[in-house]
Every structure is written in structure tokens, then in C-alpha cells.
Amino acid sequence: MTSTGHRAAPKLIDAVTIRHDAHELTWTAIGRVRVVIAGHEWIVDETKALWIPSALPHTVIPDPGALVLPVFLPPEQVPQPWSDPHHVLRTDELDALARTIAQPGLATASAVASARARVCEIIATGSVDDLRLPTDPRARTVAQELLADPSRQETLEEWGLQVHASAKTLQRCFAGETGMRFPDWRTHVRLRAARRLLSTDQDVRGIAAEVGYASTAAFISAFRRRYGETPARLRADTLSRRR
């Protein structure tokens, strides 16, 4: 089945194999979705969306109760698209843009066009908020694996064996193409994933483990250094603002 454009409203869906003439950013408003592409399973949840290039067949398998908001982007609006599927870190900005595009009845046509242009810019530049992805295909593979599962513990030497590059080459790619050393980039990914998970009911200890910290104390310390407050305080402040 081929479709173009964007859906007027979100809806619950069953497992279905589809492809689109437009690029797609698969995003969930509620719950988790598995997307199978060429035998590889990708997870879309509270922390990450999935970029799917146009015309690529994929099977969408939502968890019970999941709410999917696909964002469709015309290929001509993304001058340098990723040719393969890629996880994209969810941020407050990206969430707001996705809601505007996927629910056009709630926004003006100009707001939808502006939101779509901004998403295209994010995809075309390979950046999400202040986090950049490396352009070297070997380093980008490492980055995508960590976006998919921030808890992975491989060293650069171990990653190098998987992507056929030396640790020095990968370190140089991360430093030169993202502006961060690999350990700093990985920490950034973990803390951003943790920040998203703080909007769920999961406790801080569980979040720390899910994003790759063996020690809750180490997680809290890293989180405070990055955001200036503890995870518990950030969660409390966020809940207070929502009331």
C-alpha cells in the first residue's frame, strides 16, 4: 500500500506493512511501536522517533493502546536525506513540530508548513537539538546503535571491531563531526533519553539502569552536572508546571 501526504488525525493501528512516496518520521504520542524493515526491528517510544526514507517497505507493530502520529515529508523538501532508517532523538521541539504536522486541523496552514520545514532542516543537517550525528558511516552506525539502546556498554575498541574501524578513527570522527568526544556524546544521549523517561512513572533507579548506568548515584551526579538539578527535582518541577 502506498500513500502520500499526512493523516488528518492520529488513530490506533494494527500491524500492517506499508510504504510511502514521502519520507516518514514515525513518532508515538502514546506507548511503543516496533517497526520491522528488511528483517531488522526498530523501536519507537518516548525517547526516540524513526526516520524512514520514501518507498521503503516497513511493517508497523504497535503495542496495545499505542498511538502513532506519522509525520510525512515530501522528498523535495529534504535535500540531503538519510538513505537508510535512522533513530532520531525526541526533544520538546521535535515533539511540538510532530504534533503540529500530524494534526493539521489544530494549526494554521502556515504553522504546519513552518513546522515541516523545521523538521526537514533537522533531518537534512543530521542534528537533533544541540546533538549532532557523525557523518562517517562507521561512526554513524555506532551512534544509531546507541540511540536505539543507550545502555550499551561497548568500548570504542569493541565498536571498532563491529564496524571495521580503529578506535582512533571512531574517536576522530566523533570529535570532528559532532564536536564531542565519544564518551561525552554517549553521556549526552543517555541523559537525554533519561530526561524523556522522567515523564513516565518509572522510578529514577530504573531509569538509570535503562539508559546504561550501573550506579544510580553516578547517574544523578551526571544528570545534575548536565541540567543543573537532580532527576527527582526536574520531574517535580515539570509536574508542577503542568498543574
Rank of each mutant, 00 (worst) to 15 (best):
P85M: 05
L146G: 01
V71N: 13
A117E: 12
P64R: 00
R138A: 11
L131F: 04
A117C: 03
V68Y: 02
D130E: 15
Q103M: 10
A66E: 05
V112Q: 09
G126V: 05
A111F: 02
H87Y: 15
L67P: 03
A117Q: 12
P70I: 04
A96P: 00
G126I: 03
P79H: 11
H164M: 12
R138E: 03
D92Q: 10
P75F: 09
Q153M: 07
K168G: 11
P81E: 07
W159N: 04
V68N: 09
D63A: 15
K168E: 15
Q103C: 01
T108Q: 06
L97S: 12
A96M: 08
G105D: 13
W159P: 08
S114T: 12
E76P: 09
G126L: 07
P137G: 01
D129L: 00
P75R: 13
T91M: 01
V88D: 13
L67Q: 02
A113K: 13
A111T: 08
A165T: 10
R116G: 13
A143L: 02
D63H: 11
A115S: 06
C120T: 08
E157Y: 05
R118P: 01
V112Y: 09
L97T: 06
P79N: 05
L147F: 09
S151W: 00
E145S: 15
D95E: 06
T125R: 14
V112E: 03
E76T: 14
P70Q: 05
V88C: 11
Q77K: 06
R138I: 00
T135S: 13
D149K: 11
H87K: 09
Q144I: 08
A143E: 07
S110V: 11
D149G: 08
K168H: 14
Q80V: 10
A139G: 05
L131Q: 02
A165Q: 02
I101E: 02
A109S: 14
A66W: 11
E154V: 00
Q144S: 06
I122M: 15
T125V: 09
Q77Y: 03
R152Q: 15
E145Q: 15
G160S: 07
C120H: 05
T135H: 01
D149Y: 04
E154Y: 15
P104R: 07
S151M: 05
Q80Y: 13
E157C: 02
T125W: 11
